[in-house]
Design a binder for these strands. Structure first.
Lengths: 256, 256
DNA sequence: ACCTGAACACCGTTCAAGT
DNA sequence: ACCTGAACACCGTTCAAGT
């Protein structure tokens, strides 16, 4: 199976569930015999649960149906394709990002909090990251996140035409950073070793080789910390860089 | 098929071709009857060609074998799994990143050039991005790229313990940015519309909705440019932010 | 040493049929 | 309206067999 991606495996070239006709559940209203009935929400919830526990590669429509105690094809009554279902699951967990807006707070703190929360999402659900790259990511929750980020960033004093670039910087950096982080974690889990052990192992095979001499001072400046701690440090420093950069490039007239 | 990812589809939990025993081709030396023979390099080259032309989702071992005029299973003589093959293809194209090092040049220019070249790789080969997230990316060419980036960054005057965070910032931002870019391009190509048409279409469905009022000034500041131009602008501004941030956070003693 | 064929255990999805 | 069964056209990979 490996790293399949791309869309259009089934021939049709849809762009997004959210941009097509039917973002709402098919029929609702009278269903007195509910309870054990299928349901779009139940399907999406089960999808998220399966993706969390077994990963994207092991997820299949048949596996999902089994989990729901139903035949493989029943799911297709509620969802057009596997892609659409994954897109729904993606937006569902995107709702987990914390979005309390406090217009009185420092925009730097707010931006940091947002980035940290977003990173958390990608690390807790490692399957989110490949799907974000795969789909357009224009579901309601995704739009809410970018909306908040945009408003926070605006308070920094950047000019309107500077905002998209700055937003992309913070957003894509966090995405890329947490992607690697989540993948690495899952790799280690699959291989049955701790992240720290694996890190030490890699360092071990590298230390001898002369081409890595020039980075010895970096490695030595980081001994004694766990991989987790190191990453949190790196992430924080990168955010500091971004914020410092924004502060030095924003329109001088609006300097606070 | 959709967005498969994750490793270990076949059960074994390998971490990387490069970290296992056999990075070099199996046997070489006497092969007088070559020419139409299979060969690891030929296999990887054909893989890259197929991935470029048809995308990751449509790539399969059987499809590859057909392309090579050979039976499906012949490939397995040279390569252990599909994952390994994809990892080899990934590192092969990573070699396309331009890496002329000029210790005399301004580190800012060098960093920009490196990021632009790296972005180019991801946009030209949209299948690279999901694979980078998927694998550990520790092939020789990948290591060469990070090596150069690290040396350039070092000339900025950052302290050793600041380097990993700064490297992650530039690297992951570029990765994330180009990932979205490449995906969007391929989506449009698959749907048979130009990126500009699709952009206009999205804007069209958004303009009316009141929740997008607050970003109207941003959209108005960007009319008349192509999607391509806008993205190049955003990318450049983000890089400026990063560089400005590094300059303001580097150890004062080494200020140039 | 290198390549093939048949087979296994999977996929996503269609379609006609059941209730 | 909702669910099922059988079927189609695929997968990656194993394994015994050919040359």
């Amino acid at each position: 199976m490996a790293a399949g991606a791309d869309s259009g495996s089934s021939g049709r070239a849809r762009t997004s569930v959210w941009l097509e006709g039917r973002p709402a559940p098919k029929r609702r209203g009278e269903r007195p015999t509910g309870l054990d009935r299928l349901d779009r929400d139940r399907i999406v919830a089960a999808t998220v649960r399966l993706l969390d526990s077994e990963g994207l590669a092991r997820f299949s429509m048949r596996r999902l149906a089994a989990e729901l105690g139903v035949t493989a094809m029943s799911v297709y009554w509620y969802v057009d394709t596997k892609d659409d279902l994954l897109e729904l699951a993606l937006d569902a967990v995107t709702g987990e990002v914390e979005l309390e807006e406090d217009p009185g707070a420092d925009w730097r703190d707010q931006l940091r909090e947002l980035a940290v929360s977003y990173r958390g999402l990608l690390v807790v659900h490692p399957w989110v990251s490949p799907l974000m790259g795969e789909y357009l990511n224009v579901g309601p929750h995704a739009l809410a996140v970018t909306g908040v980020a945009q408003r926070v960033l605006r308070r920094s004093g950047l000019a309107p035409e500077q905002l998209p670039g700055a937003l992309a910087l913070i957003y894509q950096f966090t995405y890329g950073f947490a992607t690697i982080e989540g993948r690495f974690a899952r790799r280690c889990a699959d291989a049955g070793i701790s992240q720290d052990d694996f890190y030490r192992q890699v360092i071990g095979t590298i230390e001898d080789r002369p081409e890595f001499d020039e980075t010895r001072d970096i490695r030595e400046s980081r001994t004694g910390a766990t991989v987790e701690e190191l990453r949190t440090c790196d992430f924080a420093f990168a955010l500091d860089c971004v914020i410092a950069g924004i502060e030095s490039l924003r329109a001088p007239s609006r300097r606070v």
